[in-house]
């Protein structure tokens, strides 16, 4: 779904929650007159289960879209091996092959990206513009952060991930 220039994607979890409560409401309204009398509030409430995730996704994606040109200008192209705890807060650009993809269904994908020098975890807190899969060669723009904010190994907080070569089989 497109709102303005922003492509909005709702996670499968949000859809599942909406479907679950829709079915629950249908069943309850068939059997209970009390529920039927409250439908004027329950139906808008039900739709809020979809509207809120859509709104959050729209806001985060438009925020990331605004940040992308800044990172494009400021990021230094580094090999993955060069990324270390001392670089926390620095904007980096890395290129590599996607080795693993996790949590895509939550709209919070985590990738493991590797180049010839090493591998690093790339975390994204919104949906990417492109559907990135294992073995895609990608360019990542992001900021070096610690895995658990104040501790943990350095990872890349991804602002943008885009395929530069399609899947390597």
């Amino acid at each position: 779904m497109k709102i303005g220039k922003v492509e909005v994607k709702v996670s499968i979890i949000a859809i599942a929650v909406f479907v679950f409560f829709t079915i629950l409401l249908l069943i309850a309204s068939v059997y209970s007159p009390d529920v039927r009398s409250q439908l004027i509030w329950l139906i808008p409430g039900l739709f809020m289960l979809l509207v809120i995730p859509i709104a959050l996704n729209y806001m985060s994606r438009s925020e990331y879209a605004d940040l992308e040109p800044l990172y494009e200008a400021q990021s230094k192209t580094v090999r993955i091996k060069m990324i270390n705890a001392g670089m926390v807060g620095k904007a980096v650009r890395i290129e590599g092959v996607v080795e693993q993809v996790h949590f895509q269904f939550l709209n919070r994908p985590q990738y493991t990206v590797a180049d010839r020098s090493g591998a690093i975890s790339v975390k994204m807190f919104t949906t990417p513009n492109e559907d990135v899969k294992v073995n895609d060669v990608v360019e990542v723009l992001g900021q070096v952060i610690q895995r658990y904010i104040v501790t943990g190994d350095p990872v890349v907080n991804c602002i943008s991930i885009r395929k530069i070569i399609k899947r390597q089989e």
């Binding site: 580094v78 060069m82 001392g86 670089m87 980096v92």
Partner: peptide, 9 residues
């Protein structure tokens, strides 16, 4: 060394 490590190129 420290500047390079910290990304202050």
């Amino acid at each position: 060394f420290v500047q390079f490590t910290h990304g202050e190129y």
